[in-house]
Design a binder for these strands. Structure first.
Lengths: 158, 158
DNA sequence: TTACAGGCTGGAGTGCACTCCAGGTCAAGA
DNA sequence: TCTTGACCTGGAGTGCACTCCAGCCTGTAA
């Protein structure tokens, strides 16, 4: 498999594949007689896992570190497991934060629906819907962000 | 409240607050006699929500768009709700992907533990442990890394 | 009155993660 | 043979999201 095929199969561009090789995320591949990179199908599994690490918030330097350990083989099993355990914790925390945000968004969306319908909104609930930060409400008098529209005293974003 | 106080309360630096103002995320505040920015407590709720949008993956341009709508007052309720509904979908999808990753990590961590203990690992199971069955979210059912480190035939990263 | 903390502006610099480009090589098909 | 397309390298450029800096101003406190 040449780099173009791998690009197609992995979803990464050839530039990105060469870049990943340069920074050590991908092992240096064999070359054919003409100097072109030749890849084995198995590299796809590694690229996939790298993509998953990335999409779940692991930055390049951590991935580099992991790739470096991987290159050491069995000697790095424990170190790799430790990294994965740390990442697991981060992923778990992120799920918690996102789940919380889902609630915040649901409340806010509901609030907007009711405002759109012209329903009067209880300021106490507004606070609750908007954030954990319980600041006293009372419209702030900024010309550009507040009470501008006809018929709106309460803006969910105030 | 001056910019230093707001920085302390919001967790953002004064530089970041001025930057957010410059790009339109924060409304232009009033100024005191000496030309210094003066903030009202209520801005904290908005900053908080912006932070939440950011930490849940909304980029600056989308936040700018939302802030622009917010500045329009009641006239933008529906547009804002639409943006929040789109973001809700994204957050929900992200939770799905992260949850899937949690399973992948758990299997991989378990695999490493067994390798560290010197347990022989059945290659078939290895694959199973690493692969997403059926690739639910856009990926093609490959979910593992693979390669040969020096000195191990059965490397979880292989 | 002077020291100094804090604030102001415009603009340059940073780190991440690519992405693009110029100028060249290689190999298969017309 | 010639053309074409894929590939090569080194290096420059991009977009995001800040972060830092120089040089200046203001207001309070010793």
């Amino acid at each position: 498999m040449r780099i173009g095929d791998l690009a197609e199969k992995s979803g990464l561009s050839t530039d990105t594949l060469r870049y990943y090789e340069k920074i050590g995320l991908l092992p240096k591949p064999l070359r054919d007689a003409g100097g072109r990179r030749v890849y084995d199908e198995t590299i796809l599994r590694w690229i996939d896992f790298l993509a998953r690490l990335k999409s779940t918030g692991m930055g390049i330097s951590k991935r580099q570190q992991y790739a470096e350990l991987r290159a050491k083989g069995a000697a790095s099993f424990t170190a790799r497991r430790t990294m994965l355990e740390e990442h697991r914790q981060k992923v778990s925390d992120d799920i918690g934060a996102l789940t919380e945000m889902l609630t915040v968004l649901d409340e806010k969306i509901d609030l907007y629906k009711r405002m759109e319908a012209g329903e009067p909104v209880d300021p106490a609930f507004e606070n609750c819907a908007r954030t954990e930060h319980g600041a006293p409400s009372g419209m702030k008098g900024r010309t550009d962000d507040n009470s501008t529209g006809p018929g709106s005293r309460a803006d969910p974003e105030t």
